[in-house]
Design a protein around this nucleic acid. Sequence first.
DNA 1: CGGTCCAGGTGTACGGCGTACACCTGGTGC
DNA 2: GCACCAGGTGTACGCCGTACACCTGGACCG
Lengths: 225, 225
Amino acid sequence: MKQSADGARRAPLSRERVLRAAVSFADGAGTDAISMRKLAQELGVVPMALYKHVANKDELLDGMVDLVVGEIGPPGAGEWRLTMRAHILAARRVLLRHPWAAGVIQSRTSPTPAVLGHLDSMARLFRAGGFSVSLTHHAMHAMGSRLLGFSQELFDDTAATPDPALLQQLARAYPHIAELAGAVGHDAASTVGNCDDQAEFEFALDLLLGGLERLRAAESVGRGT
Amino acid sequence: MKQSADGARRAPLSRERVLRAAVSFADGAGTDAISMRKLAQELGVVPMALYKHVANKDELLDGMVDLVVGEIGPPGAGEWRLTMRAHILAARRVLLRHPWAAGVIQSRTSPTPAVLGHLDSMARLFRAGGFSVSLTHHAMHAMGSRLLGFSQELFDDTAATPDPALLQQLARAYPHIAELAGAVGHDAASTVGNCDDQAEFEFALDLLLGGLERLRAAESVGRGT
DNA sequence: CGGTCCAGGTGTACGGCGTACACCTGGTGC
DNA sequence: GCACCAGGTGTACGCCGTACACCTGGACCG
């Protein structure tokens, strides 16, 4: 009679079910409600049961991020600037649907597959739009944080993964990211985090300041100043 | 003889001492080491003693942020773009000195005085450089996150503070911020958070995309494409 | 000088967190 | 009929923030 106690005996858990439940629970209950214990309660299960499906809380969060980022569809086609604009606005809409997601993404230290996929498709758009590899690299950095909704320090360059086979596999899965990585170090398989943060920062800064200066000048002309 | 037990009896705590200790402890021990208990231990004191000087952990973090942001000196003078550039790079240097600070700042929901002061001086630079109030407003948003190191959603517009006397005092302390606030709503004392997030996002996005397009075009010309 | 006051440090305790580890249980395959 | 094991359970540990009652030593006042 155990089964009649909670209706239909509760469908068995699975990594998929856990992650989906976590996402919609976080959607409804807010960022700070994301705890293993509360999520377990939501699923009508004892906390430790979750650990049969995710290794720990970090992996849970990674999985949630992946699910959300996956909601951003692939970009469209056409003139690069319009396509990129639409793609980024689509990403923003998704993040607005899941208010907890931006904070969680920022707290992650290593990128999940869906995030890498998103970055890869952005790099592809730049390349297809006629950007050189190097300019694409700078552009990706400049877009960081605000415009992707993603962190600017996405890759923690301290955690080296020197396994060459795995790197090759990554390079096949995310060819445009691999291309960028190769542009800095000379061997294509070298670590991804080997770019000059200070230079990238100044690049983005000057891009913005330059744009603002143009707007200011236009404004002054308009006002006859 | 109590005093000989720990050397010089330990100078009495104070809000100042607690905050300074917290900052340098976090500098050395990393973000996740910031706990009331560990900080108390560091100070040779029982955890609850800290609560005689800060109301709770949030206030501690706010105080730490204020201390760090205070390290960014006032901006210099001169052509706006160079001055702004130097000021922002100074801010970045400070944040790099305290690696935990960026994360903590991003987690805060309401701005501390030093943060407001920093924002105010940035707004002042724009205004002095010839920017209209409205363009300054957009520019501040566009600078958000990455370039200040500060969060883009700095003001939580849900927490309304409708006390007019307090607002007037704020307006006196941070005149340039008040000016921006006044530019959107028409009464200068209305809430600060009443700007169109979507519009500001697209403004910043288009600023970056426009700048990138210019660079791309220049690159193509250089290569004769 | 005796007494009161109180800022500031203490001790204990509670509820919440992530999760290690031993255990049970019901279905599957030999 | 029985071993196996994926998946759910129960208990326990050490950490966290912090409420609350308490103590203590110096300042101040009659």
